[in-house]
Design a protein around this nucleic acid. Structure first.
Lengths: 253, 253
DNA sequence: TAGTGGTCTAGACCACACG
DNA sequence: GTGTGGTCTAGACCACTAC
């Protein structure tokens, strides 16, 4: 995380950098030096403008740079605040998907808020993953927000085969998916997963209370039980400022 | 990826949304509807301003929203272009870290450009990971950019124990890490990895040619050989618009 | 009521691409 | 030169917070 780059001599040589970059880099250095501490308020946009001798528009651009880097957040009517953050670490391997257990172990109260739970005709990719007939199959489509201590940290989108969704309609809308299945004696034994990262679009930025474009970790999965029978599939989009995934791998040689 | 949200009736009811959001959402819809195709140029900022009846500043804000979502890129003097993209999929499991092989298999010419290769005193966390004495140890510190077909897709930062770095100084600056070791008969047999996502800071945004704040997938690793002896450690930051990780997991029950 | 950030405007000048 | 995006300004009005 040390920086030194292109420009050999660090200070003063603004050297073609736009003002909003120069300013946001200065503020960033001050934050990282502990001059402004997590949770602390920065000077107002007006004061920063005076201090750096630039217009408010340029200060706002600089602050936007800091927001995009996750260094500060703004609150209308209150001010600009240094973000403080701690990450929740999800193990990629066993136990899989037990988000609620992971949250509890790391000191958070986990809960979900179901946004949608409805029967719909299966999208092609879902039908394929769940090995259902692609034309006629119906699936339950659920979207829910995952909270850790009242902070929305993720959005889970799942597709359940009709029978499963029907029998667990109430429970799936109240609790975490994996735990709900476990409580009903349904044990998963395999998974196909992929991880990627995408910028938050407008809809997601509203749901997860993050700025547009913030990185989200996308955990795609198809879960299996029995003898390679698909149980359900879906994805969870996590705020990357709150989460990371860990894994230990042995190479078979 | 369908949208429907808070506002029950979709069209016209701008309903409190800022203009720059309304406009960027309209443009986004047009792009996703194929009205503007990948690679194609959008109207100029001036023309968009005329079309939507707003100032250029507001158009620029709307375009910034699209850039942050990875939907368009801009080129000074030329215009605004719809991005087209295909993802490189890296398997998280065996074979680990063979980036060059993965790239070749998926039709890209992979190469690296070494930015730094120097002896330095080991940072505390590196000394710990490599099981070196934390006060005295020296390590080789390498930073290199990974290219796929001339597009910079990642930045790799590695720390090698002194002896290893010394003996492979030339080769490590020319080729991919894993392959260099393999060519010298050094076989890795275990790894401890974690994955997270972070927004690009200014330095990274310059190296990887992405906008400030773009999501990067961070692949952290400690690689081992022999009997749990650390070989080297480091991290690779990948552009998330180019890459994803996949994995298959069996749960031991 | 005063102070703060959020939105938007109209206009200026610059840097780059292209013919 | 013309047209494009990039930067920056000065100022207006609004919405929210706190006193």
């Amino acid at each position: 995380m040390t920086s030194s780059f292109m420009v050999p001599s660090e200070p003063s040589t603004t050297a073609k950098q736009p003002l909003h970059i120069v300013i946001s880099e200065k503020l960033k250095a001050q934050i990282e030096a502990g001059q402004y501490k997590p949770g602390q308020r920065l000077p107002s946009e007006y004061d920063l403008g005076e201090k750096f001798g630039v217009s408010r528009t340029t200060i706002r651009r600089a602050v936007a740079n800091l927001i995009q880097q996750g260094l500060v957040t703004t609150q209308q009517g209150k001010g600009i605040f240094v973000s403080d953050r701690r990450k929740i670490s999800f193990p990629m391997s066993n136990p899989l998907m037990q988000f609620d257990v992971v949250l509890r172990e790391q000191g958070y109260a986990g809960r979900i808020h179901s946004l949608r739970f409805q029967l719909t005709s299966a999208p092609a990719d879902v039908a394929c993953k769940l090995k259902l007939p692609s034309q006629t199959a119906q699936v339950y489509w659920q979207e829910k927000i995952i909270y850790a201590d009242d902070a929305p940290i993720g959005l889970e989108v799942d597709y359940f085969p009709e029978a499963l969704g029907h029998s667990l309609t109430d429970q799936l809308q109240q609790g975490f998916t994996y735990s709900t299945l476990a409580m009903n004696g349904m044990t998963l034994n395999a998974a196909k997963v992929s991880l990627e990262s995408v910028p938050a679009n407008y809809e997601l930025s509203e749901y997860l209370a993050v700025p547009l474009g913030m990185p989200l970790l996308v955990f795609n999965y198809v879960m299996y039980w029995g003898k390679h029978a698909p149980a359900f599939c879906g994805k969870t989009l996590f705020r990357s400022d709150w989460t990371c995934y860990t894994s230990e791998i042995e190479i078979s040689t």
